[in-house]
Amino acid sequence: MTVPAATRAPVPDPGPQRTRRRMATPPWARALGYWLYQYKRTWRGSITTSFLYPVLYLSAIGVGLGSLVNHHAHTVDGVKYIDFLAPGLMAATAMQIGGNEAMYPVMGAIKWMRTYFAMLATPLGVVDVLIGHLAWIALRLTAVSAIYLAIMALFGTVHSPFALLAIPAGVLTGMAFAAPIAAFAATQMNDAGFSALYRFGLIPLFLFSGTFFPVTQLAGWLQIVAEATPLYHGVALCRALTLGHLDAGPDVAHGTYLVALTVLGFALARRSFRRRLVT
């Protein structure tokens, strides 16, 4: 093999673009690019429901059921029912989106569409693939939380300028579910585990973590369990921010809890992605 270097290139046209230096896109951002491409197809329906569902839930439960609560109990934790409910629903929605996006799409990218394997045949590595996907989920959560906050404002349930921080709080709540659930999804051979996760994880959290009523109404030990769940901390943080009832100690604790769970989830996901994708 003593071919002169100049003729070695497979397609003998390097083109001017290959010699011009430009800022390289980090590999994880290229993986994120895939999910953005995907979204081109579905964004209309997705944005529509992001607006519509908060409106439906807030009018049916917040206004409708709220009118009965106002009549009977007058206030919940000192505020109108809809003011109590709305930030709880915002956090619960973030949980649901974060969880969903880390279940079927992860499994699909491993098993059905094998998207991750397409990525791994290129310069991207396993960690790039994982960060790219999580970054995409974070972007989705940002949009959904911002829309939720806007709808809440229309319903008059935003009572403090700190409410803007409820957007990152919502993203954090969603990521505290997305990262560990992605770790779990990468270990699953079929989607049966997802139904179990829904039925014994996400649905009970939705019902008992302080979204619809204060956890203080739960029996002693059940209250402790509820307060240990990630959704409880997400709800409490979003609620403190939109109501403006801030209390540095607990609020920092809520945030720290959610960050810690996200980081732990990421570490676990890195391990389970490696095990599943590199064989």
């Binding site: 609560v69 109990a73 019902l207 008992f208």
Partner: peptide, 19 residues
Amino acid sequence: FEPFFYLLSIGVGLNKLVG
């Protein structure tokens, strides 16, 4: 389990708020 959770949640939670 799902309906069980729903009934329980409303029983311990909303029941008190709505009357």
